[in-house]
Write a protein that binds this DNA or RNA. Structure first.
Lengths: 227, 227
DNA sequence: ATCATCCCATGCGTGTTTTGATTGTCGACG
DNA sequence: CGTCGACAATCAAAACACGCATGGGATGAT
């Protein structure tokens, strides 16, 4: 995920930028639409956070330009203009969401996530993957369940990461093997079974609810609810 | 576009409903999540407008349920709870947008349009196959009829999936055998009959209407209406 | 050299799948 | 009106595959 912030107020822009970076999201800033346009030509952004009161070209016009050229970029308008008329115009020119200043950063973040959630192939790449009380920090490779810290081996970790990135999805052994062992699956081995077993011993054995479930004849699935 | 409004305040719900209908959008209302769930099982909605303060099951929980089962439905939360915490929770459970009461109808309309426009971009194939109140989530392999969860074996599941992907189509045993057992049909076995029987026991026996029908001399057909 | 990690092979118990025989249903025809 | 035959539904035992556990060997790191 790469975000472009277009705002002529220096403070606001850098405040958002540093906030996003705390979440591991790359962010660039642009003071006006002309600069913004150039940056979008150079790099490909997943989202744009856009002010309306901009010098030269205003936010509405810029929004239309983006929509035309980069059809699938998520656009979030962030402005002091809070009247319904303004909002309607914003959505009219193609914004995906509209947030009024002053704002809480956490809400901005949540809205940004929401508009990206659909578009992206997988869910937004959050640094911390969560399911029930199990957490996996992809960056630090730290795994904890409840308040217990767990130590996994490299392979166990890769497997868990794959599971957590595909929650509620039934997966065959072949699928898992190809993604976690990244060799085309050599039939006649049961590594997957063995490692699922290892994982279970560490993350499920002493806890509840169980997260890794077996689907007989199909494979495995990671999900929260029992059965 | 078909919208479901879940709100226990009668006035609000019907206000929105009639507003949407002015725009030629079909809208249904449900007073609580249980009713809402049933309606979603029967018809397929593009969007849900969801209150949080609901009797029995609150909006957050219902939102999660919807997200799980109907991945590609747009959810807009509409509630009096305006704190950032509430909003965050809303987005956390999978809402696409969050609007605080009191609201202007025009803004609701604009936001509804925005979240649907966005969703239409990527062709997300529906993962939930439906017929009457029977649902098969192809991704998680979960099968439910009404609100009962059913457990099928791998072969039963494959058969059901084949049936549901070819609704209202008469199919011979040979056709079924080739697709579900993927061996060229060894005449002289009655596996198909046996498994249709197993399936019926699980998905049709205690329910109505019956979905799997026998065509004597031809084969089987899956369809909703009796005969 | 020692240790942890990773992968493979084997065997067992259990649930699933298949088979083959029996029972049930319905229409045609004597 | 009863019988027969074709077809479908049901049943239960047998064959089979699947998933899980375990021990041990190969590999690589310290």
């Amino acid at each position: 995920m790469r975000v472009l912030i277009v705002d002529d107020e220096e403070e606001v822009a850098s405040f958002i930028k540093s906030g996003l970076e705390d979440y591991g999201i790359v962010a660039d800033t642009a003071a006006d639409a002309i600069i913004g346009q150039k940056m979008m030509a150079e790099k490909s952004y997943t989202s744009v956070i856009l002010d309306i009161n901009l010098p030269i070209i205003n936010g509405y016009e810029f929004c239309q330009i983006i929509r035309e050229r980069y059809r699938d970029v998520a656009i979030l308008m962030l402005t002091a203009l809070g009247s319904t008329e303004h909002k309607l115009t914003g959505f009219d020119v193609g914004a995906d969401d509209y947030l009024v200043k002053p704002f809480e950063f956490r809400e901005l973040m949540a809205r940004l996530r929401a508009i990206n959630r659909r578009r992206a192939v997988g869910p937004i790449e959050s640094v911390v993957l969560k399911m029930a009380d199990l957490e996996l920090n992809v960056k630090s490779k730290e795994v904890r369940r409840g308040n217990r810290k767990l130590t996994l081996t490299a392979r166990e970790l890769a497997l868990l990461e794959y599971f957590m990135k595909n929650p509620n999805k039934a997966m065959t052994r072949a699928e898992i093997a190809e993604n976690v062992w990244d060799v085309s699956f050599d039939t006649g081995t049961n590594v997957v079974d063995v490692y699922v077993n290892y994982l279970r011993k560490k993350i499920d054995k002493d806890f509840s609810p169980k997260l890794i479930h077996t689907l007989s004849g199909i494979g495995y699935i990671m999900k929260e609810d029992e059965t």
